[in-house]
């Protein structure tokens, strides 16, 4: 049953990168500014659960009701030449790599191409793209919808910016039915709250 987020964790587990035998969850309390995966700070407006597993370095996974229902992923500082997810089939299904020279439109296409390859399907659609700021830097905000192999329609939104040649990206996705609409407002506020401390 393929979903974007689930795959993200599964790939990390398969790669044997995670030390803990079982994934744990820690509470992230609303209203508290918190450091995410190293450098960026966000302030959630609702309580979230944070996975103790970090799928790739400088990443975090949050959920409220379980990852099938709402999935908030942070990728904080993807380097030049790196893909979004860890590659499991580097030769036969290589993932596109990040390049700091990318235009904002390229980031959207890069995300879409990555999703298409890992989902193996073609029902991933970008529905809206607009300019936006992340942590005070010019970037992009886009919305998408897709159906994974569990045949559930999901919607999602991403905020991303290239800062000092690294990509910072926050992505949220949830079933179109009920969960997306319930959570997206708070997620957008969280994305707006992001800032870098030096």
């Amino acid at each position: 049953m393929k979903r974007l987020g689930k795959l993200f964790i599964a790939l990390a587990l398969a790669a044997g990168l995670t030390t803990p035998a079982q994934a744990g969850w820690r509470l992230v309390e609303k209203g508290e500014e918190r450091k995410v995966a190293g450098r960026m700070y966000v302030t959630p407006t609702e309580d979230w659960n944070r996975s103790t597993i970090r799928p790739v370095s400088r990443s975090e996974v949050w959920t409220r009701d379980g990852r099938e229902l709402n999935d908030l992923d942070f990728f904080m500082g993807i380097k030049d030449g790196k893909p979004l997810f860890r590659e499991t089939h580097r030769k036969r299904a290589p993932l596109p790599k990040f390049d700091p020279a990318m235009l904002p439109t390229d980031i959207v296409e890069w995300y879409q191409d990555t999703a298409n390859i890992v989902l193996g399907g073609s029902l991933f659609a970008i529905t809206e793209v607009k300019p936006a700021r992340l942590a005070g830097y010019d970037g992009v905000h886009f919305a998408f919808s897709y159906t994974g192999s569990d045949n559930v329609e999901r919607k999602g939104e991403v905020r991303a910016a290239i800062i000092d040649s690294r990509l910072y990206l926050i992505s949220f996705d949830a079933p179109s039915l009920y969960y997306f609409d319930r959570n997206i407002g708070g997620v957008r506020v969280l994305m707006d709250s992001a800032r870098l401390k030096r």
């Binding site: 390859i117 193996g120 192999s149 045949n151």
Partner: peptide
């Protein structure tokens, strides 16, 4: 398969 086809697993 050359790619993991979502449809095929379904």
């Amino acid at each position: 398969l050359p790619y993991a086809a979502a449809m095929a697993t379904q």
